[in-house]
Design a binder for these strands. Structure first.
Lengths: 230, 230
DNA sequence: TCTCTGCGATGTGTCGACAATAATGAAAAT
DNA sequence: ATTTTCATTATTGTCGACACATCGCAGAGA
């Protein structure tokens, strides 16, 4: 039995959402994403209900939503566990991501406003400066709302695509990254690729934007594949 | 208040799943997809619980899962309603579908077995015969498991992609099609496009398979756009 | 010593009920 | 006649409890 979870999960107090299900969902989501609850760890309803002083109903609902989000698996009569994605899972995710973000870039090329493109340029610039001070550092998205890919996912103006990327794929990808390494030394290459995607977007060239974004993600995928000999 | 729902929903009896949540989820899903519960119709928990002789807990869980699947919307204190997708929703869905099925075709070109390809050819042949007897008829997927697109979604060997397409997109697309027309007179053109995709798959040419599949879906999208003058 | 069987423990699915909040309609006042 | 206020209602979120299925363990038998 793992140590008391609540002591690790405490967050400020902005979690006071309207209902306890949402609050629990947020708490558990961030706890999983931050690694406070590790992959493979079991989450059983009664224990969580006890620790948070609520009944099992909201816990149950939060867990079910985590399952739909793909962060936990729920096998019958065996409890729910945080997923511990395999390398194959990671690769599968990246293949789909290539398709989705490629389309997002294509659509964003015509859908993003000039103001959004300027903000995106600012993000790329800041990324370049951070890279200057820490050349070998990986590309970490310290702020979700100010991430390059998130901005494009929002800018494509396709609610289905935006929701899929932001609410399902990015959390899962973050989990995969925390398990397998990736993003080592690719910081500079990634930045250059971002710059080219941005240039295509500014030129409102959807065809090129899609190609460049897909190539960008495929590069990351191949960098990941290179970490395992075979 | 609509007429008693249970009288319309009765299905054989194979719904006797392990737990009542799953059974309800299946029943409601098929009821929505078959149009027995129409778009915009309200589904309130107590009524459904009464009609099926269960408590609100399984109903609640089934509805939540329907929401995650994108078949119903759940606005607070206003009940859950079956979605009545707008034309924009339909178009958004088709854009994402183009990206997803394009990637699925690319992967399937190398992942599908020879046996699977032969089965796929059989499906295309049968589609052609059906078309011969009813040339103007639309392309309807009478049998989910024997649908052209489903076979490719399964054949790509990417569980993320397969799940996304089969469990999220195809149900939603079917709902969209039942509301807006589409698929009128496009049966023959669609069949020809299917044939070409199949040919590319047989040649194990992922690049071409992706291009053809994307073009196929984009044709459907443009046919849909053509139905509305502006 | 090994295997089978019965028992307890853990965890999940389901239930009925209560309280709180927001939408709906009616009544009253301007 | 229109608007404001209030009460009713509908729906939801939450709770504690129970029944059942599964798993692990111990004891009996071979």
């Amino acid at each position: 039995m793992p140590a008391n979870v609540s002591t690790r999960i405490v967050r400020p107090e902005s979690d006071r959402r309207a209902n306890q299900s949402d609050a629990l969902f947020d708490i558990l989501t961030s706890a999983i994403m931050a690694g406070r609850i590790r992959p493979g760890e079991k989450l059983n309803e009664p224990a969580l209900a006890d620790e948070f002083g609520v009944s099992r109903a909201p816990v149950r609902e939060a867990l079910r939503r985590l399952q739909e989000k793909g962060l936990v698996t729920h096998v019958a009569h065996q409890g729910v566990r945080v997923i511990s994605p395999t390398l194959e899972d990671f690769l599968s995710l990246l293949d789909v991501r290539e398709a989705l973000e490629g389309m997002a870039s294509r659509l964003a090329a015509t859908a993003m406003t000039d103001a959004e493109l300027e903000q995106l340029a600012t993000i790329v610039d800041r990324h370049g400066e951070d890279l200057h001070s820490n050349p070998e550092g990986p590309y970490v998205q310290n702020d979700f709302d100010n991430d390059f890919h998130v901005r494009i996912a929002v800018g494509c103006r396709n609610p289905v695509l935006t929701g899929l990327l932001c609410e399902q794929f990015y959390p899962r990808l973050k989990l995969c990254r925390s398990r397998h390494g990736l993003l080592k030394g690719r910081g500079f290459a990634a930045w250059k690729e971002h710059r080219r995607v941005l240039a295509a977007l500014v030129e409102r060239d959807g065809d090129v934007a899609e190609i460049l974004m897909r190539r960008h993600i495929r590069s990351a995928r191949e960098a990941l594949l290179a970490t395992v000999p075979s």
